[in-house]
Design a protein around this nucleic acid. Structure first.
Length: 141
DNA sequence: GCCAACGTTGGC
DNA sequence: GCCAACGTTGGC
């Protein structure tokens, strides 16, 4: 059973373009237990929407989990508390979906992006995922 | 630049 | 175990 996620990054730090250039991106540096638990729940093939926070505030693409959680050594390898995953880009949104559009859409009233603004790795329902794809004028997966 | 919403730390 | 102080994230 496929699950859906939304992962945030400040584009000045790591952008969708950076992920496309790398082809496989390592999602590390998460230092929040709830976000970490979400990372650990990710399974191969799960789809993630890529959200540009702070300066852009828009969903810009879909990526896919290509390596499940492994120990995050980005702060040294002495701390077993933190995990990372790897993702690869699937496609860029035709039209980026802005935070304002998300707030305006009553079908997305319960989305965790709005309910827990500081959570950098959020779960999405399949309905929310599909609604966001539609808003970005994307073809079905 | 400011502020809301958390999360963490440390004193008691 | 409580709470004040502080730090971080992210929207406005």
């Amino acid at each position: 059973m496929l699950n859906y996620w939304l992962i945030k990054s400040e584009p000045d730090t790591y952008s969708w373009k950076d992920l496309e250039n790398e082809e496989i991106g390592t999602w590390d540096g998460v230092r929040n237990y709830q976000a970490r638990n979400n990372l650990r729940a990710m399974r191969l093939g799960d789809k993630c929407l890529f959200y540009h926070s702070v300066t852009h505030k828009s969903i810009v693409g879909v990526c896919e989990v290509c390596e499940e959680a492994f120990m995050d050594t980005s702060y040294g390898n002495e701390n077993p508390n933190w995990y990372a995953v790897r993702v690869k880009p699937v496609f860029a949104f035709k039209n980026a979906v802005s935070l304002a559009q998300i707030k305006e859409n009553p079908n997305l009233a319960g989305i965790s992006l709005l309910r827990q603004t500081r959570l950098s790795v959020c779960p999405l329902s399949q309905t929310e995922f599909e609604e966001l794809l539609r808003m970005g004028d994307n073809d079905e997966l």
